[in-house]
């Protein structure tokens, strides 16, 4: 059993978080092999994910495709994950590293919640995620870029909030919508003309999915809803009551309607 550092540390430092416990146990991923160029490797890339605020909270959506160069690596990949009961994280970039980053982030949040008996503040969660991204910087220089997106419901402000990041761990709060991944630019340009902060839950869902369809129209790496195979975007909705992962039968009609209207 790992001995708590508090035994030796004293009160100047906060108790070790999960990531530090892993590091102390020699289990954390380390990037000390910095040779060569990772662009030669054939690795899965996760594409477009978006977060959109609406009147009562925030939506997070992600397409399901991962690419390997010009080929499709996975058709049913999940890129949008609950990070706890009131927040979600989505990923773009090198899939293998990004999924591990999400797993570490989820574990850290739950770990903190159990130790302290209370959740980290939403800002605290976003700052911690920024730190995880910054730790990946050496890998980003090798071409293995991971950029997440974070959103959640903040009980202190009573609103949904969302944060975008860059590879150096910069953290930027957006007050309307944000996206990352290859199709994010197209999705944002759709949202710029269709976003309305007062929209309700139903309209918010429709706008979020339409912007993803718009991204898929222009960006070859992003897949829209695949009606033939029955593959629909992943959608998470967060409001004052918590986080819901919407089931396919709710998403399907909205996605099919979006395919009809977005050209």
């Amino acid at each position: 059993m790992t001995q708590p550092r508090a035994l030796a540390g004293g009160i100047t430092e906060p108790p070790a978080g999960f990531a530090e416990v892993l590091l102390a146990a020699g289990l954390a991923p380390t990037w000390d092999v910095l040779l060569g160029d990772a662009s030669k490797l054939s690795l899965a890339d996760a594409t477009t994910v978006l977060a959109v605020r609406y009147a009562d909270g925030v939506y997070m959506v992600g397409d399901r495709q991962a690419t390997e160069g010009y080929s499709v690596a996975h058709r049913r990949m999940k890129k949008v994950f609950p990070s706890d009961d009131f927040s979600a994280v989505a990923i773009s970039g090198t899939a293998g590293l990004a999924i591990e980053l999400v797993r570490l982030f989820q574990t850290e949040l739950e770990h903190y919640e159990k130790l302290e008996g209370t959740r980290l503040s939403l800002e605290g969660r976003a700052n911690f995620l920024a730190r995880l991204v910054r730790q990946q910087l050496p890998m980003a220089f090798q071409g293995l870029v991971v950029v997440p997106l974070f959103c959640g419901f903040d009980h202190t402000t009573g609103t949904g909030r969302l944060f975008t990041f860059d590879v150096v761990g910069g953290r930027y709060e957006e007050d309307d919508f944000g996206g990352t991944g290859s199709g994010a630019k197209e999705a944002r340009s759709y949202l710029r003309s269709h976003f309305d902060p007062t929209m309700g839950a139903e309209e918010g869902l429709s706008v979020a999915i339409k912007s993803l369809v718009a991204a898929a129209e222009q960006d070859v790496a992003t897949s829209g809803p695949d009606v033939r195979r029955g593959i629909y975007p992943n959608v998470i909705r967060i409001d004052v009551d918590g986080l819901v992962e919407l089931p396919d039968d709710v998403i399907a009609p909205v996605a099919e309607a979006a395919l009809e209207t977005v050209r």
Partner: peptide, 17 residues
């Protein structure tokens, strides 16, 4: 409390690993 914290770490590390 020391044992509780150590227990949570033990469980989280094992579940993560």
């Amino acid at each position: 409390e020391l044992l509780r914290v150590a227990g949570i770490r033990h469980a989280d590390v094992k579940g993560y690993m």
